[in-house]
């Protein structure tokens, strides 16, 4: 019997993409859906995405952004080290924190940080950044197999699913374990395409992962971002599919695939 699980993360207030992704998930008929966190940031009107997500009944994890917004912390704790990245992150965070309803904040603060599932006899661990740290960036090119094997072993998982970096990837490890970064649905994957991406995990005798691009009305989102006076750099990313900010901890191979 095949078990199919739809996994998405990095909503970043993109309510239009969230609606489109939920429709795509519904159409494909996955058995279960999880959101791996980071509901706010980057996009406009944070409450819109929160209302869609909460009314959908899709369970969600508490990403670093949700933890910060939910607990009223001073910044997003994304883990950037570059001053320009932190500058833009702070603009986005202050905008989001000021426009998120208190009820949503309480809800986010109470979300679980991780979730364990047993699917087809395999131990699946859903997390935000990594199993050991909510804001750890797991980039495909920056992780050895040896490290990912250790991470799975140390956290008792056959399959680890995470998000946080915004670029999706999947690695089948020599031991038969799997690590999946499900990508983000709030902004494009720095690939020059305006679609956003989520993952579908299928577990039967084998494990397979498929990434689905989802088109949505990105022009409308860009107009909303402009109307909210969000940074033009963010709007450009939405319109072009190329990242313009939060680039400095992107490893060379992933950055080389981008434009900036």
């Amino acid at each position: 019997m095949s078990h199919r699980l739809a996994l998405f993360g990095g909503v970043y207030s993109n309510h239009l993409a969230l609606r489109a992704v939920l429709e795509d998930v519904e159409r494909r008929g996955a058995g279960a859906v999880w959101c791996l966190g980071d509901l706010g940031g980057f996009g406009p009107h944070p409450d819109r995405a929160l209302e869609i997500l909460r009314s959908s009944g899709v369970p969600a994890l508490r990403g670093n952004y949700d933890d910060s917004i939910g607990h009223g912390r001073g910044d997003c704790a994304c883990g950037y080290t570059d001053p320009r990245d932190n500058h833009f992150a702070q603009l986005s965070y202050d905008y989001t924190a000021a426009r998120t309803a208190a009820d949503h904040k309480r809800w986010m603060a109470a979300l679980p940080e991780q979730q364990r599932l047993e699917i087809g006899g395999r131990r699946v661990l859903l997390c935000h950044g990594s199993p050991r740290r909510v804001n750890e960036f797991l980039w495909e090119s920056a992780c050895s197999d040896a490290f990912l094997e250790w991470l799975c072993e140390a956290h008792g998982a056959d399959i680890v699913a995470c998000t946080h970096t915004g670029i999706h990837w999947h690695r089948a490890l020599p031991s038969g374990r799997h690590v999946v970064n499900v990508g983000a649905i709030g902004r494009p994957a720095n690939d020059g395409r305006t679609e956003v991406w989520y993952a579908e995990l299928a577990v039967n005798d084998a494990v397979s992962v498929e990434f689905h691009p989802v088109a949505y009305d990105h022009d409308e989102l860009a107009r909303e971002m402009e109307a909210e006076a969000l940074p033009p750099e963010f709007v450009e990313t939405t319109r072009t599919g190329w990242w313009t900010t939060c680039l400095e901890n992107v490893p060379a191979p992933e950055r080389r695939r981008g434009r900036h």
Partner: peptide, 9 residues
């Protein structure tokens, strides 16, 4: 040695 310990980079 480092890979046996799960080194990342």
């Amino acid at each position: 040695e480092a890979l046996a310990l799960g080194v990342k980079e």
